[in-house]
Design a protein around this nucleic acid. Structure first.
Length: 215
DNA sequence: AAGGTCCCCAACCGCTTGTCA
DNA sequence: CTGACAAGCGGTTGGGGACCT
């Protein structure tokens, strides 16, 4: 509590208890979100505002989804990461009920630590092209973005992803992932168009965009 | 069974951005 | 404009459970 004569508040750290969660929920119910720095005074919690905000946003906030990400959600993460890089909070806005922390953790766990592999190991499984839906829009954009990958289409040996830039790597992964999770070529096309235009208004109707950050 | 290693994720830290007097 | 403070963001850590050996 005391160091070199200076008084300092000793904040609680580490995992939250059920009691603390209750206190925080009560506080937010009464006072609403925000003004986190005053939570300690008003709620009886001995936590920093930062800690309270994080606990609320990542765990207590209503509307949060639990459990594994769906293949669709995974697909969206890969698409958007390819467009924006590590903009976790921006990406999270397009995944209702998921937090930036969750998405960040997912990304790190599944993609960030790619170990170098030999070229011969990096082979995309052959798929039946008939099962893929037609590219109904913006074919040119997709083909441009996919240039390194689309030559004789699937089944080819690609370059080593570990030698790529992050965003290139993401697109490589998205292409591979497409086969594994059944995403449509069209969803990739949409991502490509958005990357091209970078117009906020274009988002309408492409994905469900939350009205605000509170779900 | 037990000791070691790996992996996931909740929570932390430092930095940046926003706001307001 | 500027300084102080709050909020937000992204990188990192470490506790603990799962999985070897």
């Amino acid at each position: 509590i005391k160091m070199d004569g200076k008084e300092e508040q000793e904040w609680r750290k580490g995992p939250w208890t059920v009691e603390e969660d209750k206190l925080l929920c009560e506080y937010v119910k009464v006072h609403g979100e925000g003004r986190w720095s005053s939570v300690a005074k008003g709620s009886g919690l001995n936590r920093t505002g930062k800690s309270c905000r994080l606990r609320w946003v990542n765990y207590l906030r209503p509307g949060l989804k639990r459990g594994h990400l769906t293949p669709q959600e995974e697909g969206i993460i890969i698409e958007l990461h390819a467009l924006w890089g590590n903009k976790w909070s921006t990406i999270a806005k397009y995944l209702p009920g998921r937090t930036d922390n969750e998405i960040k953790n997912y990304w790190r766990t599944h993609f960030k630590k790619m170990k170098p592999r030999r070229k011969s190991q990096i082979i995309v499984p052959k798929t039946d092209n008939k099962t893929l839906p037609p590219i109904s829009r913006c074919e040119e954009h997709v083909m441009e973005l996919m240039k390194p990958y689309d030559s004789d289409d699937l089944g080819m040996v690609f370059t080593d992803p570990t030698a790529m830039e992050d965003h290139e790597q993401t697109y490589y992964l998205s292409k591979v992932y497409q086969d594994l999770t059944n995403w449509t070529v069209e969803s990739v096309a949409v991502a490509a168009v958005v990357a091209e235009q970078e117009e906020e208004s274009l988002w309408d109707g492409l994905w469900e965009v939350p009205e605000n950050d509170i779900m």
